[in-house]
Design a protein around this nucleic acid. Structure first.
Lengths: 327, 327
DNA sequence: CATAAAAATGTAATCGATTACATAAAAGAC
DNA sequence: GTCTTTTATGTAATCGATTACATTTTTATG
């Protein structure tokens, strides 16, 4: 590997001068600069980020922690993060945690080790003690999911309100038996969206019945399908379903159709996230749109500001109900 | 930040001894080891990866370059890479290139800079000169897509054969007007799958007609939908479609159904990749399954072997035709 | 042309770890 | 208890860059 020493020798200058040329710092004489640049060219020299980072203690790398890349929900968020980060001279690295504490620890350590400058966290299942410990010394922000108790900045939407509006929409269409397909309540959004669901039922004087609520372990289509199958086994079938994610909703629609029922005539379905796929189903899926790109972009800005030592404030963004054919 | 010096001081030993404890190297006396470990505990010391990597010139980090994380095709591959890499003590970082040469350059440089030990490349649109240049000095393997001319190791499937079998399946069902929905032929798989398509037509004495071939820029659903719309505008409509990806195939099915036609009765559809979604459509999608997890796992093994200086051989894995409702 | 001021470059310490080699301490042999 | 061998620990160089400070070269001034 070519080092700065070799370049310096070839150009007949000191390493300090080469470094100055590299960082176009101070005043290097035109003649010398050209000579150094030539040497760099000829030797095909690439400065070692390791040496540089060690000295500067910064890496200009951001870690983005997501539970699983297979979840389309994260796609747009990541685009937002990426565009913003790159425009500010940072690169991002995607880390899939699988909600596995051991993996999280690895990535957290990359920040402790100074391999990365900060973390954008989208995984809610992180160990709280570890999280606080990291947050106390290193830049970290949360996106979408966040810890309600801690002091860590976040950007998210009002999940309770969004769920409330979704369910209200279903009720206003005349559906009085509204089911809920939820995920594990370890997720904050799951707890909040259930609250919104219950609030809407309550407001319209409808009973909150556990026979119409399901909690699925699986976040994939199959999870939604299973939950729907179980709901359809009830003697008293629901005539509408609010699902906390599009993926689950699509699984649910699949099951409804498998059983020979029609969406929305027999059962109306509403999802959450507006993933690109939700427009490809038949019927197309009514859903709640989150400003995902914006969420990503804002969280990138937040973490960069934090890295630079500025104070940042948490934000709650607006959502939107997208009415399509499934309701 | 706590350094090894502070630990050494606290434990009353030299940094060399602390380092030995950290790497449980050689023989450190029980008593000393305990004292050092206590100091590490109390100071909450984390060794700096930067210092360590600089000295050892290795980072135990692998870069995985994909064009876009939104493409579900990569999901399983990445799982395979991740499991294997982690079991061998390497961490992976996902890099989304957007097929943008500037971004690729950034990630390539991370390897040149020794921030990462090697690259698993899944993006075909990389600049060839850059690629060869990197490959000549640093470990890199290609997964799925590869450069036909270079010497860089790869793992993939026989795309031409798979496409041939898919189209043969359509023809054997009695469809004599088989259309092709392809992507940009900058992709190797696109060129190979077209060859397989043509081979099958040729074998059954069917003409190769450009009116039944479409090339789409967009890799998303919309691309498939548009291509299908255009195909259905032909006076002489196809009665079967081979689409080079499930995503495009699903878009195509959507359009067929929008126009009031039935899959597979009016038009049979076959996809490629067996993404998880392909089982959620109505009807479910006939497709070609690639051994994605295995491809990922093998490519991780290949890159690690390369990093360790071993020679590695390219591999072509088996695929499988999954017949479902759409044909 | 001599001298002061400004600009360019060099010297060497530094970041935080690892490790060859040197030295000190413990164990074993008589 | 002394001497040798073995084991444990310390010293200092090293990885590849950056930068405060020192030194040299250039430019400006009278």
């Amino acid at each position: 590997m070519v080092t700065i020493q070799e370049v310096a020798k070839k150009a007949g200058v000191s390493t300090a001068t080469v470094s100055r040329v590299l960082n176009n710092r101070e005043t290097v004489r035109e003649k010398t600069r050209v000579r150094v640049e030539q040497a760099i060219q000829e030797l095909n020299y690439e400065p070692s980020a390791l040496g540089r980072n060690l000295r500067n203690s910064e890496s200009r790398l951001l870690l983005v922690l997501i539970p699983s890349i297979s979840n389309p929900f994260y796609t747009e968020i990541i685009n937002g993060i990426e565009d913003t980060a790159i425009s500010k001279g940072y690169n991002i690295l995607l880390c899939e945690t699988d909600s596995n504490p051991a993996r999280e620890a690895i990535y957290f350590n990359m920040v402790r080790n100074r391999l990365a400058d900060g973390i954008i966290l989208m995984d809610p299942t992180v160990n709280r003690k570890n999280l606080y410990d990291l947050a106390s010394r290193h830049p970290i922000v949360q996106c979408s999911e966040f810890d309600e108790e801690g002091e860590i900045s976040y950007v998210t939407i009002d999940n309770e309100l969004a769920a409330y509006q979704a369910v209200k929409h279903l009720i206003k269409l005349g559906n009085r038996r509204v089911a809920l397909i939820n995920t594990d309540e370890k997720y904050l959004y799951a707890r909040e969206r259930r609250r919104g669901y219950e609030k809407a039922l309550h407001e319209f004087g409808l009973p909150i019945e556990s026979k119409w609520m399901r909690e699925t372990e699986q976040l994939g289509f199959e999870g939604g399908q299973q939950a729907m199958r179980s709901l359809l086994n009830e003697a008293d079938k629901p005539n509408a379903v609010f699902s906390v994610s599009d993926v689950l909703a699509i699984g649910a629609m699949k099951e409804i159709q498998l059983q020979g029922l029609k969406v929305p005539d027999d059962i109306a379905v509403i999802g959450f996230d507006k993933i690109s796929f939700s427009n490809m189903t038949n019927p197309t899926l009514t859903t709640i749109a989150q400003p995902m790109y914006k969420m990503g972009s804002i969280s990138a800005n937040m973490i960069i500001n934090k890295i630079r030592g500025k104070d940042v404030e948490s934000l709650i963004l607006d959502h939107e109900l997208i009415i399509r054919e499934s309701t």
